[in-house]
Amino acid sequence: MLQYLGIPPVDTSLANNKLAGWDWPGIVLFSPLLETLLLGGAFKLMASRLDRRLAALLAALLLAGMHEWYAGGWGWVVLAPLCVFTAPFALTRRFRDAALLGGLTHAFHNFYACILISWFPA
């Protein structure tokens, strides 16, 4: 989706893992918001026909596949965190609460990942 918006793929090689100052808002604010909406929408579509737990797992797999397509290798890296981010959708009946909890957890995860990348460059 980002490629269609004209945003080039992220360089995922360990040789160039430094973050520019303008990367932070996109990684910590924009990405969790967009991805939470995608996760929630995919979950909602699938939960109408499938068990809520299975729908959450499939939504996580779908978004992991999107990460893999956008930045090769990252699908496997983000699969476990995406399962955590989709868990509120399976466990909470109110969509707004699940989206808020999953989105904030996602933003916090991206925040400390950015700190680690900035403090410990390859």
Rank of each mutant, 00 (worst) to 15 (best):
Y70L: 12
W69L: 11
P88L: 11
L91Q: 14
A87G: 10
L61V: 10
L100A: 15
E68S: 13
A59R: 07
N110Q: 07
W74S: 14
H109V: 03
L104W: 05
N110A: 11
P81G: 12
W74R: 15
T92F: 06
V84H: 04
H67Q: 15
V84G: 12
P81L: 12
A64Q: 09
F89T: 02
G102E: 02
R94Q: 10
A60Y: 01
R93Q: 12
C83L: 15
C83R: 06
G73H: 08
F108V: 14
R96K: 10
L62T: 10
M66V: 12
R96A: 14
A64E: 08
A87V: 04
C83F: 13
L61I: 08
G103F: 00
M66Y: 07
L104P: 00
L100D: 03
A90P: 02
Y70W: 05
W69M: 13
L82C: 10
G103Q: 05
H106R: 07
L63S: 12
F85M: 13
H109C: 10
T86I: 02
V77A: 13
W74C: 08
H106I: 01
D97A: 13
G102S: 04
A71T: 09
H109L: 05
F108W: 06
G65Q: 09
A71I: 03
H109R: 05
A64N: 11
C83G: 15
H67N: 15
T92S: 03
F85L: 08
G65H: 08
L82F: 12
T92V: 10
A90D: 04
V77Y: 08
G73A: 11
T92C: 10
L82N: 06
M66R: 10
T86P: 03
A90L: 06
L61P: 02
A59W: 01
T105L: 15
T86V: 08
G102R: 00
P81C: 14
A71S: 15
L79P: 02
A98G: 07
V84T: 07
F89Y: 09
L61S: 12
G72P: 01
L101Q: 12
